[in-house]
Computed example of a mutant assay.
Amino acid sequence: MGRAAEMTGTTAGFLRAIGEQGLITPLRSEGGHRRFSRYQLRIAMRARDLVDQGTPIEAACRIVILEDQLEEALRLNQELRDSADGPPAADT
């Protein structure tokens, strides 16, 4: 937890708080230590940026969740468009 806080420029308390808000759910090692993915660290840094700008932590977490959902929806939309286009028609 301490290393993750150091890497994200936050505190262990901040990481626990965004975990309680459902923004991140780190895995646990056999010894019970929290294990954060790079993606979770990136999400934590985005939330920290919003909080640093004056956004309440609850709102910052919701914003980050919505941004993530939008990014995923846009990616899926593009995949569907690409697959709908199909291969180019052959000239006959």
Rank of each mutant, 00 (worst) to 15 (best):
F14D: 04
D82Y: 11
L76V: 13
A90V: 13
T55I: 09
G22R: 03
I43W: 05
Q40R: 05
E6F: 10
T25R: 12
T8N: 07
L50N: 02
D82S: 12
L15V: 01
A84W: 15
F14I: 03
Q21L: 05
Q78A: 13
D49C: 08
L15Y: 02
E6Q: 11
F14W: 04
L80S: 13
G86F: 12
T11Q: 05
T10I: 03
P26R: 07
H33Y: 09
A4F: 05
Q78R: 11
R62T: 01
Q78T: 13
A4L: 05
L74N: 13
T11K: 04
I24E: 05
D49A: 10
R34E: 07
S83N: 14
M1F: 08
S29T: 03
R35F: 08
G9C: 07
L50K: 00
P56A: 08
D68C: 00
R75K: 13
I65M: 00
L70S: 10
A60I: 00
A84G: 14
L15R: 02
M45L: 10
D52I: 09
D68Y: 00
E71V: 10
E6W: 09
E6N: 10
I24C: 02
R62C: 01
S83G: 15
G31V: 01
E30S: 11
R16E: 06
M7F: 11
Q53I: 09
E72G: 12
G19C: 08
Q21E: 08
T92M: 15
D82L: 12
L74G: 12
T10N: 03
A17I: 06
S83I: 14
L70P: 09
A60S: 02
L66T: 07
I63S: 00
R81A: 15
A90K: 12
A17P: 06
L23K: 00
C61F: 01
P56H: 08
